[in-house]
């Protein structure tokens, strides 16, 4: 009975629930985003060392946070899907990868733009940027595997395994890269962890982080809804839905 509920019941329920949530999330995300951007780009004080160029931090730092967070969500959902054979968790895991890759890419690009005025070059083998680059490759691997496997169900399950293997490895990779960095270059300018960040800068940063999270949840739900429709296209309720529209 439980299995029946998981397998047949939830995708449909999820589809309608998510459909109702998406507009609300969109509005909330927009409000946070506008306020965060205004606060960060206009109201926050100018940095005495970096001038106005530090303001890219309000995009870069939340994006970097999201890149890791989404990978963990992906691995978590994948594990749930594998252990309890829950189709919905598989769908969530699969839908995470492209969003996570986009955030990782955003973090890399903004990090590189930020580096230009500071270091004078577009790319420096800084520990965090390097970790972020490897994370991007991990995401691309997940997406490549998902595209390569033809059967959707198998693809989702294989991807989940890879995501779990990746999540075990991420801390090790991160640690090793940091170690490598101190070994080869000596400590670079620690631009990312400002020890005492001004409260006027912290607030827009946190607001932006919330906005990014909301954005992630919204896009995730939208992607998952598409995936649900695709997977369940042979079922009665999807046919009724199509006929009704």
């Amino acid at each position: 009975m439980w299995r029946f509920f998981h397998q047949m019941g939830s995708p449909r329920y999820f589809y309608h629930l998510a459909g109702r949530l998406v507009p609300w999330l969109g509005v909330a995300c927009l409000v946070f985003l506008l306020y965060g951007l205004y606060d960060g780009l206009v109201l926050a004080p100018t940095d005495y060392q970096q001038g106005d160029s530090y303001r890219i931090m309000f995009i870069h730092v939340p994006a970097a946070w999201m890149s890791l967070f989404i990978y963990m969500v992906m691995a978590g959902a994948g594990a749930i899907g594998l252990i309890w054979h829950m189709k919905l968790a598989e769908i969530i895991a699969v839908s995470c990868a492209p969003i996570g890759a986009s955030f990782t890419f955003l973090a890399l690009v903004t990090g590189s733009i930020w580096g230009k005025p500071m270091w004078g070059t577009w790319w420096v083998w800084d520990a965090r940027l390097t970790s972020e680059l490897i994370l991007l490759f991990l995401y691309l691997g997940v997406m490549a595997l998902h595209n390569a496997v033809e059967d959707k169900r198998t693809a989702a399950r294989a991807t989940s395994i890879l995501a779990i293997v990746g999540v075990v490895n991420i801390p090790i990779i991160h640690y090793s890269v940091e170690w490598w960095n101190t070994l080869h270059q000596g400590p670079t300018v620690t631009k990312f962890d400002a020890p005492s960040i001004d409260i006027d800068m912290l607030i827009p940063l946190l607001v932006m982080a919330v906005a990014f999270k909301l954005f992630f949840v919204m896009v995730l739900l939208m992607r998952a809804r598409c995936e649900v429709l695709q997977r369940e296209r042979n079922t009665q309720w999807v046919r009724e839905l199509v006929e009704a529209s």
Partner: peptide
């Protein structure tokens, strides 16, 4: 190679 090489970094 795409799957495995990033994991070989450490």
């Amino acid at each position: 190679s795409l799957l495995v090489l990033p994991l070989y970094v450490p």
